[in-house]
């Protein structure tokens, strides 16, 4: 019970006059795979960033039974289309090795063990043949896979992903969902902001319906109903989507 990977209560975040999150509450059981779903501006990305402490939100966030700050080594985050300088002189393998920083430390040597670990993570996302490429020479989907590999290199138990399928090709989408399901099978917990309502049931087993506060959360079969979606998105938007 106390070891629940992520337990969020009353998460509230203000940007000036705008209320991005208004008391969002959710629990994410171990080895579950949850889609965070909601309309634009519902605070889905803000939810992940607030959980990670990247935004100064109020409320209580507990990870693995303690304050989230004490569990950062067990949490990996894949941002939405990382806002990095793509002309940066860094190869794919170097990006993945950045995920090993907690293990290598400041002065630790990056020896064969870490190289092999990073290569294995690249192989898992199907990018092993691109290890020596410049990060900027890859397609958007390939870049997204490399950032997933960087998260894998951390060896985390809780994965937070912000729209991992946004703007990627079909091969990348299939590769990413395979990896995420594999992580779940190994006992890791996966939480992803997700946009495509048509794939929620196929990809995830739980849903958090969010519109600044929690509309509903639970197993997909129980929660992902027309009624709940209408409450999250508003009835008119639902009609437009049909």
């Amino acid at each position: 019970m106390s070891q629940i990977p992520l337990d969020v209560r009353d998460l509230t975040l203000r940007y000036g006059d705008v209320l991005a999150l208004d008391g969002a509450t959710a629990r994410f059981p171990k080895a579950s795979m949850t889609a965070i779903v909601g309309p634009n501006g519902a605070g889905k990305s803000s939810f992940l960033k607030s959980v990670l402490g990247l935004e100064a939100a109020s409320g209580e966030v507990r990870a693995f039974g303690g304050p989230v700050a004490d569990a950062m080594a067990r949490i990996a985050y894949v941002p939405q289309r990382a806002a990095v300088d793509w002309s940066f002189p860094v190869r794919v393998i170097d990006v993945v090795l950045m995920g090993c920083y907690r293990q290598t430390g400041l002065l630790g040597r990056i020896d064969r063990r870490f190289q092999a670990q990073a290569m294995a993570c690249l192989a898992r996302v199907g990018m092993q043949d691109f290890a020596r490429r410049q990060i900027g020479a890859l397609s958007g989907g390939q870049q997204q896979r490399v950032f997933l590999a960087r998260a894998l290199a951390q060896g985390a138990e809780l994965y937070l992903l912000d729209e991992p399928f946004a703007g990627v090709d079909a091969a990348t989408e299939a590769a990413i969902i395979n990896v995420l399901k594999g992580l779940q099978a190994e006992g890791a917990t996966v939480i992803a902001v997700h946009h495509d309502l048509s794939t929620v049931a196929g990809y995830f087993d739980r849903v958090l319906l969010l519109n600044r506060h929690t509309i509903a959360e639970g197993p997909v079969a129980e929660i992902f109903t027309r009624d709940a979606l209408a409450r999250a998105y508003g009835p008119s938007l639902m009609l437009a989507a049909e």
Binding site: M72, P79, G99
Partner: peptide, 8 residues
């Protein structure tokens, strides 16, 4: 942001 999450 990633650096920060890695404890830097």
């Amino acid at each position: 942001i990633h650096a920060r999450l890695m404890g830097i």
